[in-house]
């Protein structure tokens, strides 16, 4: 018998994702995004995202089925992001997934978005080593997770106490007059800059600070102050140096804490995920430090690091394989679903 065919729905932010996997094999990863509609607002507008999800939902399902070369009736299980995320956005995907599960008479799995970010790596690099550590960084999250068993046990070691790393990228880009979202333009600008030009602060790295929590708000403000001081003095702002120095501060803190967590928990596998994992400096520094510490680093391709439906299908597939009970028919969305709830 072939492995189960799982369809996954993701609508926690601005990407409408529908992915299809068979076991650990990725068959389709259809995506629609409303990013362009949020650009002029400098951030994701929840109502705009929710409207776009509704519009894109059925066409995106069709695209995924066509790409996978399967029909809806072939599906063995349905998985959907139940949280965390924007409530109104989550509910569109959740309601759609519940309807497909009902109409196809297949089990439904409401899953944790963060755990799905970890699961997606199995589609590229095979079964996850357990325990693994996961560093998830995006516009919505900055989390350090310990993953003893992806299907049932994921614990949070640390998280941002203020802004997500991706938010800091967006805000710094704005200060520098670069477009939204800020990740890619800062990455590009930084290539021409000197990462040691400006010594920006590394948040929460003092001896008495929480060892695995993050803070990017102070860094963001420090960058803004520095840039404003130049402008006030009538001096040109060295955009490349600011971008490179800011990016270095973020990558330094993230990788230092991740490697330290690996060492202190005796874990020798680290998975990166989230949109910021596409940042070239974060990847390079993570590779360097993991290699030095004897840690195996696993990073999905940039396309799979950002939000998508394949990651949800991947986690759903994992749950089916582990024999985890499906969700109840009255499954709802939880915008602040805790990480230790892998599925509900």
């Amino acid at each position: 018998m072939s492995e189960p065919l799982v369809i996954g729905f993701e609508t926690s932010c601005d990407e409408t994702g529908v992915g299809i996997v068979r076991g650990h094999t990725l068959l389709a990863d259809a995506l629609a995004t409303s990013m362009a509609e949020h650009e002029r607002f400098g951030g994701v507008v929840p109502e705009i995202a929710s409207r776009a999800h509704l519009e894109a939902m059925v066409p995106t399902v069709h695209r995924a089925l066509a790409d996978a070369g399967v029909s809806a009736s072939d599906v063995d299980a349905v998985a959907v992001t139940a949280g965390p995320g924007l409530t109104g956005a989550l509910l569109v995907g959740l309601a759609a997934a519940k309807a497909y599960a009902l109409a196809l008479d297949k089990p439904l799995y409401g899953v944790n978005h963060l755990a799905a970010h970890v699961a997606v790596d199995e589609l590229q690099h095979g079964p996850l080593a357990e325990p693994s550590l996961a560093l998830l960084v995006s516009g919505g999250h900055s989390s350090l997770l310990l993953v003893p068993d992806l299907a049932q046990e994921v614990t949070s070691l640390g998280r941002t106490i203020d802004d997500a790393a991706g938010e800091a990228f967006d805000k710094v880009a704005r200060v520098l007059g670069l477009p939204f979202p800020g990740g890619p333009p800062i990455d590009r600008a930084a290539r021409e800059g000197d990462p040691s030009a400006i010594d920006f602060p590394r948040g929460l790295t003092g001896p008495r600070d929480a060892p695995y929590d993050f803070s990017f708000s102070g860094l963001k403000t420090a960058v803004a102050r520095w840039v404003e001081a130049r402008r006030k003095a009538g001096e040109p702002v060295p955009v490349a140096d600011v971008a490179a120095s800011f990016q270095e501060a973020v990558a330094d803190v993230l990788t230092a804490k991740a490697v330290r967590a690996c060492r202190e928990h005796g874990v020798d596998h680290l998975v990166l995920g989230g949109g910021v994992a596409a940042n070239s400096r974060l990847r390079a520094l993570a590779e360097e430090r993991c290699a030095a510490a004897g840690i195996v680093l696993r990073v999905p391709s940039p396309r799979l690091c950002t939000d998508n439906g394949a990651m949800v299908a991947a986690l759903g597939s994992r749950l089916v394989a582990a024999g985890v009970a499906p969700s109840a028919p009255d499954l709802g969305a939880d915008s602040s679903l805790p990480i230790d709830v892998v599925s509900r």
């Binding site: 109502e47 929710s50 409207r51 999800h53 509704l54 939902m57 059925v58 399902v61 069709h62 809806a72 409530t87 109104g88 509910l91 569109v92 309601a95 759609a96 997934a97 519940k98 309807a99 497909y100 009902l102 109409a103 196809l104």
Partner: peptide
């Protein structure tokens, strides 16, 4: 109200599509 409204609309669309 938008959020609840979308639940019904997307449910109807998905049920009809699947069948």
């Amino acid at each position: 109200p938008f959020t609840g409204l979308r639940v019904g609309v997307v449910t109807a669309a998905a049920l009809a599509d699947a069948r």
